[in-house]
């Protein structure tokens, strides 16, 4: 992807995000949100984050790779346990990265 391409993607997101932030503050000050849409929107963050997390642990070089020699999977599972317990970003990040680095250095299943 060229810098030019990324620049226009960024501008698209920037303008779109501004319009959403401004929506009820400046444009439709008299509208209210349809309740069904509001309920759907409430689940989008969880759905999007999960759809980014799980493939990042499982998919390597374009195909699903479920085995211990894919170090991101065991490291990811450790991080899942830490995240479920602490519900905090920093411990999750530290344990997950430390686990990946140890496996890469030790290479027990390679």
């Amino acid at each position: 992807m060229t810098a030019n391409h990324i620049f226009w993607i960024m501008m698209g997101v920037g303008v779109g995000t501004f319009l959403m932030r401004a929506s009820f503050l400046t444009f439709f000050t008299k509208f209210t949100m349809p309740p069904l849409l509001e309920r759907l929107m409430a689940y989008l963050p969880v759905a999007i984050l999960s759809a980014l997390i799980i493939p990042a642990f499982v998919i390597r070089n374009g195909s699903a790779h479920v085995g211990l020699d894919n170090y991101r999977l065991p490291a990811g599972l450790v991080a899942v346990a830490v995240a479920a317990k602490t519900k905090k970003v920093l411990p999750t990040l530290i344990f997950g990265l430390a686990c990946l680095w140890s496996l890469q250095a030790w290479a027990p299943f390679g």
């Binding site: 984050l49 997390i53 991101r72 991080a79 995240a83 905090k88 999750t92 990040l93 990265l97 990946l100």
Partner: peptide, 11 residues
């Protein structure tokens, strides 16, 4: 790998 890990802490 910090990206999915951060999302995991957020989710």
């Amino acid at each position: 790998f910090a990206i999915p890990l951060t999302f995991l802490g957020l989710v």
